[in-house]
Amino acid sequence: MDLPTDGVSLDRSKVKIIILAFFGVVFSFTSGFFLQVFMLNGGGNNLLLSSMAALGFMAEFVICVFFIKTGWILNLAVFIQSLAFFALFYDRLSVMVGVGAAIGFLFFISGIYAGRSELENTLEIKFWKISKKALPKTIAGIGIFAGVVCASFINIDSKDFFIPRDAFNAVVAPITDSGLLEKIVPGFDFTGSTEETIRSIAMREIENNPQLKLLPDSIKEELLGKAVQEVKNQATGLAGTQLNFQNKLSDTIYDFLAVKFYSLPENILNSTPILIAIFIFLVIISLVWPIRLAAAFISFLLYETLLALGFGAIILEGRSKENIILK
């Protein structure tokens, strides 16, 4: 029911504000926790759980924009939620992480301002329009957070590759499971041995060649052996060291990347953490449209549920403008 009221811009329930802020802290901390576990131990499920918690944080962020009226309280709530994300990364604090955290927080503040500005300057509350204003900047902030945190795991003084092997396999697993590579390059399989994958691709090339296809099997096998050896020699030459082609293809690629990474010039090697942070940020930003839709949908369900449960209510101002308050 629309209720006329005065003082609509006041926060009427400190308890409910604390509840909203608390859930934001929970989602933020959970996202950071599973991201840390993923970076240390790998596991696609950990990355998925971190992403789901981040979606929960974004949804709750929009809810806070709607329900918390006082600017400094809303800013403080988001600041605490931001700290919760970094709580488990205290041992990885650096200038890069600090600057990234500050920039990410400023994006959050910008998202708050954009959402609140739209809310204050419209006569009727339009959830989707307001969330569309707030969420892109929120996603950018999360992208910066994730980028600097992941980049903080890079230790250029160590000879261990900065991406854990399990984490690398967790990233490439969905590519294999989707069957996309098999459609593009028949025979390409991250889970099979490297040598067998090379043989499979080479055999397909021979079978697809009308002239080579007519050759006796013994000649085909000889050509196949030469092709496989040539690819192995080229890969070894590029790596500058011997590679184990009996390992899974994903492991061989991982070893190759690790060797090439530490053979980079020192000036580039020192810039790697920042470059990785920027890359992760750009990847997340490139997915802003589907992420925004998913977060907005979850937030809308929460928004409607809170209104239905009487947690908040839409009221009318004296100038017949809809507003929303905590009851």
Rank of each mutant, 00 (worst) to 15 (best):
residue 3 L to G: 06
residue 6 D to A: 13
residue 7 G to W: 11
residue 10 L to K: 15
residue 11 D to K: 10
residue 14 K to D: 12
residue 22 F to Q: 08
residue 24 G to E: 09
residue 28 S to A: 14
residue 35 L to F: 09
residue 35 L to D: 03
residue 35 L to I: 03
residue 37 V to Y: 11
residue 38 F to V: 02
residue 40 L to Q: 15
residue 42 G to F: 01
residue 45 N to H: 08
residue 50 S to I: 03
residue 51 S to D: 07
residue 81 Q to T: 10
residue 81 Q to S: 13
residue 82 S to A: 14
residue 86 F to I: 07
residue 89 F to N: 05
residue 92 R to M: 02
residue 97 V to C: 04
residue 98 G to M: 04
residue 107 F to Y: 09
residue 113 Y to S: 08
residue 115 G to I: 04
residue 115 G to V: 00
residue 120 E to S: 07
residue 123 L to C: 09
residue 127 F to G: 00
residue 128 W to C: 01
residue 135 L to S: 02
residue 135 L to A: 08
residue 138 T to I: 06
residue 139 I to E: 11
residue 143 G to C: 04
residue 143 G to N: 05
residue 147 G to V: 00
residue 150 C to Q: 08
residue 151 A to L: 01
residue 154 I to K: 06
residue 156 I to S: 05
residue 158 S to C: 01
residue 163 I to V: 13
residue 164 P to M: 08
residue 168 F to W: 09
residue 168 F to Q: 05
residue 186 P to F: 00
residue 188 F to S: 01
residue 190 F to C: 09
residue 191 T to W: 03
residue 192 G to D: 14
residue 192 G to W: 11
residue 193 S to R: 10
residue 203 M to D: 12
residue 206 I to E: 02
residue 208 N to H: 11
residue 208 N to C: 04
residue 215 L to V: 12
residue 215 L to S: 10
residue 220 K to M: 04
residue 227 A to R: 09
residue 227 A to E: 12
residue 228 V to K: 13
residue 229 Q to H: 14
residue 229 Q to I: 05
residue 230 E to C: 10
residue 234 Q to I: 14
residue 236 T to K: 10
residue 236 T to F: 02
residue 237 G to S: 08
residue 237 G to M: 02
residue 238 L to C: 10
residue 242 Q to L: 14
residue 243 L to N: 09
residue 249 L to Q: 05
residue 255 D to Y: 05
residue 255 D to K: 09
residue 261 F to Y: 11
residue 264 L to V: 01
residue 267 N to W: 10
residue 270 N to P: 03
residue 286 S to C: 03
residue 297 F to D: 15
residue 306 L to K: 08
residue 307 L to A: 07
residue 310 G to R: 11
residue 317 E to I: 01
residue 320 S to G: 04
residue 321 K to Y: 07
residue 322 E to N: 06
